[in-house]
Simulated assay, not measured.
Amino acid sequence: MIQIVLEDDLKLELNRHDFAYIASVINAVFPSEAKEEYYSPAINGQKASGELYDTFANYRNLLSSTGLINRRSKKSSRDLDSTIVNVCDDNCEAFKFIQEYNEPFDEVLENWKRSFAVRWNILEDNKVETADYLAKFPICILNNSNIFKLFLEDSKMLHPDIALNIDWQICNKVLENGSHLKDPTVKKWITASLNCSEENRKAIGLLVLPYLFPSTKIKARQGKQSFKASKLEIQEKFILYFETLGKADDFERQLLNSNVGLQPRIIFVGELNCLKAYVTLTDKKYAFENPLDAVQQCFYMYQALHIKYPAESTSVWTFIQIYIFNVKTKFDQVSSSIKSIWRSLKK
């Protein structure tokens, strides 16, 4: 990478912002590796370090020793954006393609994969709203289920070991362990699950799962007070359940008319023995015949779009992320209750 950056101008000087930018591009392609491994700036008397910095210094020493550059003459650093565009030319061309076209889908998918580094930089900066990010790409504006194939590819890039074939057998243990719960709604759900298909039984298990977790204290946000989320609130921030589609639509309209930020939502609708499911994102709603598929695709959506889990259901999502999807990140806060619930379900 250093050789490519310097190939047009061997006298080019890189500053700390340049090193940080190149490190972020590398990190976007290899997200499991820390940016600090490639560049750590000088701070508190410690010298700058990292593979990028060391390689640059060694390469310039080599150029100087062979007489190709004069170390005494320094040249101001040029715009690294243009250099990175040249280095990642294929990546940027792919990015341009998905900004202009929504078909044929095979080509969109291929260019989507090739443009991952560029897109992840946009998301990782946390300076763009999800709706604005999606609006950049025609394929995402369409109410088309192909969007989930894109999210899946991004999730695989971020987490190479992510589980793809989920059997959700853990849901049966959830129903078994939840039988001691006193909540009347939970008791009703567990009783109904006895007369359901395997698919709907597991879906009911996911509705019950939040009730195994303790009530969650939500830290105060700007202008608001801290509060303790009830188990119902935890469940509804994980999966909403309505007996009719009309009630679900009314709820969504209220949200769209409010100023509440819209995270991805899972909605189960219908009789418990014949559940349908939807995943909503901004103003789009995607239907799923199998409610378990809706949960799986919503998880990939959270990963691919770099969206935080809802505060109320973070513990539930973290549990699923680690123990169901085999995804661990440096941001995970694994409480003792999460570990305890996993141990009880594995007995």
Rank of each mutant, 00 (worst) to 15 (best):
1 M>A: 15
2 I>V: 14
2 I>H: 09
2 I>E: 09
3 Q>R: 14
4 I>A: 10
5 V>E: 02
7 E>G: 08
8 D>Q: 09
10 L>A: 07
12 L>A: 08
14 L>M: 14
19 F>M: 02
24 S>E: 08
26 I>Q: 10
26 I>Y: 14
30 F>C: 15
32 S>D: 05
35 K>M: 12
37 E>Y: 15
37 E>K: 15
38 Y>S: 10
46 Q>A: 07
47 K>C: 11
49 S>I: 11
51 E>F: 08
51 E>Q: 07
53 Y>E: 11
54 D>K: 13
55 T>D: 10
57 A>P: 12
59 Y>P: 02
60 R>T: 09
61 N>S: 05
61 N>L: 12
63 L>D: 03
66 T>H: 11
67 G>C: 02
74 K>A: 08
74 K>C: 11
77 S>K: 09
77 S>M: 06
79 D>E: 03
83 T>L: 12
84 I>D: 06
84 I>A: 04
87 V>I: 13
94 A>K: 01
97 F>C: 00
99 Q>R: 06
99 Q>K: 04
102 N>T: 00
105 F>Y: 15
108 V>A: 00
112 W>N: 06
117 A>M: 06
117 A>L: 12
119 R>H: 02
120 W>A: 02
121 N>P: 08
124 E>F: 03
128 V>I: 13
132 D>M: 03
134 L>M: 14
139 I>G: 04
140 C>T: 05
145 S>V: 07
146 N>K: 09
148 F>T: 01
153 E>P: 04
154 D>C: 10
155 S>R: 02
158 L>V: 03
160 P>L: 09
160 P>I: 13
162 I>W: 01
162 I>E: 00
166 I>T: 09
170 I>G: 03
175 L>W: 04
180 H>L: 11
182 K>V: 14
182 K>H: 07
186 V>R: 00
190 I>C: 05
194 L>W: 03
196 C>D: 03
200 N>P: 08
201 R>P: 02
202 K>E: 09
202 K>H: 11
208 V>C: 04
208 V>R: 01
211 Y>Q: 13
214 P>T: 04
214 P>R: 05
215 S>I: 11
217 K>C: 13
217 K>I: 15
219 K>I: 06
223 G>A: 08
224 K>N: 14
225 Q>H: 13
232 L>F: 13
232 L>N: 13
234 I>Y: 03
235 Q>V: 07
238 F>H: 01
243 E>V: 04
251 F>Y: 14
252 E>M: 13
257 N>E: 14
257 N>W: 12
258 S>K: 07
258 S>M: 10
262 L>W: 00
263 Q>E: 02
266 I>C: 10
268 F>Y: 15
269 V>C: 15
270 G>A: 12
270 G>C: 12
276 K>L: 12
276 K>M: 12
277 A>E: 12
282 T>I: 09
284 K>F: 07
286 Y>K: 06
287 A>K: 09
288 F>R: 01
290 N>K: 01
290 N>T: 04
291 P>C: 09
291 P>S: 02
291 P>L: 07
293 D>L: 05
293 D>T: 05
294 A>D: 03
295 V>Y: 00
297 Q>L: 09
301 M>R: 01
304 A>W: 04
305 L>V: 14
310 P>V: 05
312 E>D: 08
315 S>K: 10
317 W>N: 00
325 F>I: 13
328 K>E: 05
334 V>Q: 06
336 S>P: 07
336 S>E: 14
339 K>V: 09
339 K>P: 00
342 W>A: 03
346 K>P: 11
346 K>S: 12
